[in-house]
């Protein structure tokens, strides 16, 4: 059974004064099964965010359609949780209130909201920060809160757009392990966008490689590394072999971008 089906989805941004139309995404087809963890890997500007925004319902495709459990996506909804590339916590809400935002929207009573929010606060290791404002958190803590906020809504699919892109390497590695731990325990359907090759392999059950602009699926590589995965897996021969293969794929694309520029 397929949970998410992306069927010949393309996106062209209309021309603006003095600019030709931008073809951001070539017709793209992709299926994501239940409890799959798919990572999308591609160079900057290849339309990764565009694709994710279309799935989230924040943007409309120029052609093609997206269906989730057979129902066409026509707008944003709580069944698709999203974690953005930029920090998008509500600055006027505390960590706990941020995480409970979607629950409150659904009318969950206060006590229930707190219980669920606090459970997720523990899961992402933010105990003791329930009453902090986003401003008082580091970047990594903000993204952990954003992940908890999306998960607390119990979406069918979790969309993550380079959530760790702005973090330093050590923090990033810890966050990857945390996210993978949650997935291994809870089994969620996850679509994770990144331009970091190691991250794509470490997290994903499948890596989708996208070509340079205009973006399209260039290759699909299954990652048959056993779960649960720890950071140590990054030095195993299997991991390194996958990495070499992906480095080649991505390098050709990056070169194309460099030539276009």
């Amino acid at each position: 059974m397929t949970a998410l089906r992306i069927d010949q989805v393309s996106r062209t941004f209309p021309a603006r004064a003095g600019h030709a139309p931008t073809r951001a995404l070539e017709p793209t087809t992709l299926d994501v099964g239940d409890n799959d963890f798919v990572t999308i890997l591609g160079p900057s500007g290849c339309g990764k965010s565009t694709l994710l925004r279309i799935i989230a319902g924040l943007d409309r495709p120029t052609s093609g359609r997206v269906t989730l459990d057979g129902r066409e996506v026509t707008g944003p909804g709580a069944d698709r949780g999203m974690v953005f590339q930029s920090y998008t916590l509500f600055p006027w809400l505390t960590v706990r209130e941020n995480i409970a935002f979607g629950l409150r929207e659904r009318g969950v009573p206060q006590q229930g909201r707190h219980d669920i929010a606090d459970a997720f606060i523990r899961r992402v290791g933010l105990s003791g920060f329930e009453h902090h404002w986003p401003k008082q958190l580091s970047g990594g803590m903000q993204q952990r809160t954003a992940i908890a906020r999306a998960l607390a809504n119990d979406p069918k699919i979790l969309l993550l757009d380079e959530p760790f892109g702005a973090l330093d390497n050590q923090t990033r590695a810890l966050m990857q392990e945390m996210l993978l731990g949650i997935w291994e325990r809870d089994q969620k359907t996850v679509l994770f966008v990144t331009h970091d090759i190691e991250e794509a392999i470490f997290l994903g059950s499948r890596v989708i490689v996208m070509s340079a602009r205009p973006g399209r699926v260039k290759a699909e590589i299954a990652v048959e590394l056993p779960h649960p995965r720890s950071y140590k897996i990054k030095t195993t021969p299997e991991f390194v072999a996958l990495k070499e293969r992906l480095v080649e794929e991505i390098r050709t694309e990056a070169l194309k971008v460099a030539e276009q520029a």
Binding site: A56, G57, L58, G75, P76, G77, A78, R80, G81, M82, F84, S86, T88, F90, F101, G102, E105, R106, R149, A150, N153
Partner: peptide
């Protein structure tokens, strides 16, 4: 108002 905050609210199920 920051557009990304509005979009975040929509993806969290806000009308």
């Amino acid at each position: 108002t920051r557009r990304d905050l509005v979009e975040a609210a929509y993806t969290l199920g806000a009308g």
